[in-house]
Structure formats: structure tokens, C-alpha cells
């Protein structure tokens, strides 16, 4: 049981690292980014290639920096021109980008599944009462908590974080105070993309790298963002932890319903509290 709870924690914290970028982007741009899973996948592939030359940590750095640049470009070239357009248009464009990314991966890396070794520093297991647990999985929990703590510190203690919180509530009124919301959005989308890219590398040693990897994580990330409250990071953190436990415990206690449980939870939250757990942005 302890192992199941820990595995749920691993998946939940990892899912938060992934969904936090989605929540931030929605807060600033009001865009439901169907290409977010593609950013995660591109991060994994960039990291995989870079790691061959520079090891796991080099791969993580390349994925973070590469996806940050890609995120800024995505905001300037795609999200900014889509500002004010109807949600269906933005949905179709980002969905199209996800398909293009998948083709790009298949063209340059092929359809094969790749494995990615964990760093030597984090290999091995820790002894727990009556069992063992991989150190790397605990490192993923630490990564998710670090992302949550870092974002919370950035948003509540820095001037830019204050601007992000204001613009997430009302970008026009924030701009009237002198905040250049276009530059701010580029920064936030860059940060969100970098987090997705890093999540791709972090997940690679325990999940396989393949062109299909984007779809599963995207669905769960959306469920986290919706349950948490669109654009709310605190809500997303709580939702990710709940979803992590539901995914893992569902396999043990309700194996026939495992795939349905996240959707049932989302339905229940939307009926009980349509604005999500947090009910407000960032």
C-alpha cells in the first residue's frame, strides 16, 4: 500500500510540473493549448539526443532552454495573433501544431520507442519498511515540489510574479497599470514550455519515449487544470495530487474503472463546483 501511495505521489507531482505550464498559459492568454503535450514530447526528444553527448543533466538543460525558446516563439508567432479569436480557432490551431510536432518527431527520430537512462547519482533504491523504492522516483517527487515551490515563490515574492497574477485576472486592466502584457505572456509561455520540456526528460527514464507519448499526458494535464480551476496553480497542485492517487489506487481497487476514474472525478467537480477546486486564477 505504501508503494502505491508513493507511486501516486510520484505521478501527481510529475503531473503538476506538466500541468502548471498549461495553467499559467491559460491564465495569461486564455488559450487552451492542445500543443502542450507536444512541448513535453519535444523536450523528451531534445533531452534524449543531447543526453547522448552531455549526459542526463545536459539533456535536462537543453530541453529546458530549447523549449523556453520554442515557447517564446510560440507565444509571439501563434498565441499573440490568435488573441481575441474564438476558442474553436485557437483549439484547432494548437491541435494542428500538436499533429505537426508528432510528424516532425517521426521524420527525425522515427517511430521507435527509445529508452533514457536515469542519472547515476539518482540510481538505486531506498529501504522502506518491508520494501524498497527507487531513488529516481523520489527525485521526481522532489522535482514536482521544487517546481511548485519555485512557482509559488516567483508569483508571490517577485514584481514579475505580481504582474502575472494581475494579468491572469484581467490582462487589459493590468496593462493599463503599465504592464507590457505581450512581453509578460511571452515570458510565461516560455516558462510553461520549459517546464513541459523538463517534465518530458524527467519522465523519460520511467516512461518510454515515443511519438505517441504526448496524448496520454495531455489528457491528464487537462483534467488537472480543469479540476484545479482554469488558470489556478494552487488548485492544479491539489488536483494533480488527487489524480495521482486515483490513478494508482484505481489500478489496485477498481481495475475495471481505472481509465474512467479521472473523468468521473472531473465530472463530479464540475457539477459540484464548476469553477474548479480553487475557483480563481493563479
Amino acid at each position: 500500500m505504501l508503494i502505491q501511495i508513493l507511486n501516486g505521489l510520484v505521478y501527481g507531482t510529475f503531473l503538476f510540473a506538466m500541468a502548471s505550464g498549461l495553467a499559467l498559459m491559460f491564465g495569461l492568454r486564455r488559450i487552451v493549448n492542445f500543443a502542450h503535450g507536444a512541448l513535453y514530447m519535444l523536450g523528451a526528444y531534445f533531452g534524449y539526443t543531447a543526453a547522448k553527448l552531455a549526459g542526463f543533466w545536459g539533456g535536462l538543460l537543453v530541453a529546458a532552454l530549447g523549449l523556453a525558446v520554442l515557447g517564446v516563439a510560440l507565444d509571439i508567432l501563434v498565441f499573440r495573433p490568435l488573441r481575441g479569436r474564438d476558442p474553436l480557432t485557437t483549439l484547432l490551431v494548437t491541435f494542428g501544431l500538436a499533429l505537426i510536432s508528432e510528424d516532425f518527431i517521426q521524420t527525425f527520430w522515427g517511430n521507435d520507442t527509445h529508452s533514457f537512462a536515469e542519472p547515476a547519482l539518482l540510481s538505486g533504491v531506498v529501504q522502506l519498511p518491508g520494501t524498497t523504492f527507487p531513488i529516481y522516483r523520489l527525485a521526481i517527487v522532489a522535482f514536482g515540489i521544487l517546481v511548485a515551490g519555485g512557482l509559488a515563490f516567483w508569483l508571490t515574492r517577485s514584481k514579475v510574479g505580481l504582474y502575472v497574477r494581475a494579468a491572469s485576472h484581467d490582462p487589459v486592466i493590468a496593462a493599463v497599470q503599465g504592464v507590457d502584457t505581450d512581453r509578460l505572456s511571452a515570458l510565461v509561455v516560455g516558462v510553461g514550455a520549459a517546464l513541459a520540456g523538463m517534465a518530458g526528460v524527467v519522465a523519460a527514464p520511467i516512461l518510454s519515449i515515443s511519438p505517441a507519448m504526448a496524448a496520454d499526458i495531455l489528457v491528464d494535464s487537462f483534467i488537472v487544470v480543469v479540476i484545479g480551476g482554469l488558470g489556478s496553480l494552487g488548485g492544479a497542485f491539489a488536483a494533480a495530487l488527487i489524480l495521482g492517487q486515483i490513478n494508482v489506487l484505481g489500478v489496485v481497487f477498481l481495475p475495471e474503472l481505472t481509465a474512467l476514474l479521472p473523468f468521473l472525478l472531473m465530472m463530479a467537480v464540475l457539477i459540484w463546483r464548476p469553477t474548479g477546486l480553487a475557483g480563481s486564477r493563479v
Binding site: 494581475a166 485576472h169 484581467d170 493590468a174 493599463v176 480563481s280 486564477r281
Partner: peptide, 29 residues
């Protein structure tokens, strides 16, 4: 705002997710 025009908008348009202090600090953006 950057040019030197301060605006107190109709309906106040304050940020409910920011404290009084933070609303004011935002004005210095």
C-alpha cells in the same frame, strides 16, 4: 501609464486576487 497618464477607471477595476498593498504596487509597474 509609462507616458505619465494615471487612470482611475470607471468601476474601480481592482484585482480581487491581490491585496491592497499589491494593487498599489501594481500601479508602479
Amino acid at each position: 501609464a509609462r507616458a505619465g497618464i494615471g487612470v482611475a477607471l470607471q468601476g474601480r477595476k481592482l484585482f480581487p486576487n491581490l491585496s491592497v498593498r499589491e494593487n498599489l504596487m501594481l500601479g508602479a509597474a
